[in-house]
Amino acid sequence: MKEFGGACVLLDRSDINTDEIIPAKYLTENSKLALKPYILEDLKLNGFNPKTSLEGARVIVTRQNFGCGSSREHAVWVFEVNNINVVIAESFARIFRQNTFNCGMLAIELPKEDIEAIFAIEAKEIKVDLKGQEITALGNGKHRAAFTLNPFDQELVMAGGWLPYADQKY
């Protein structure tokens, strides 16, 4: 199982799509690592610069429907190869959420109030307690929020992803 939590970056917009996360022109790469420089390249957001804003980040916090669009798992790998393995949002697009758990990473859904609170304190760091299913956001203050993981998704995270899980079980 992976280690979760650390410095976070806040992306203050809903419906951030897979083409913004990793443009299709990079889908010709045949390795995950090759995607690394192109993370969020086409995301236009005030104050966000994909080349500098993500330095040291381990966690992304965002709004609704994150990862909508294409089925490309490249949109998860590009975070993975940049050492980001937790995305916290009000909601996710189905395929992105499944791809994240399939890679043994975390897609945590929180109620709108908690997301608002994390943005309000301008969180710089997120601690993730997977066992206790709670996150703690630290910034201009502190915000704790409980989350619920579907038991199957939790098993995928523990197993290190869907392939090892399925290989053993089916």
Partner: peptide, 16 residues
């Protein structure tokens, strides 16, 4: 589905 689901589909013929 994504690539991991595809791998499991190719290998085992199942999907979640």
């Amino acid at each position: 589905i994504g690539t991991t689901d595809l791998e499991v589909g190719i290998l085992k013929g199942v999907c979640s």
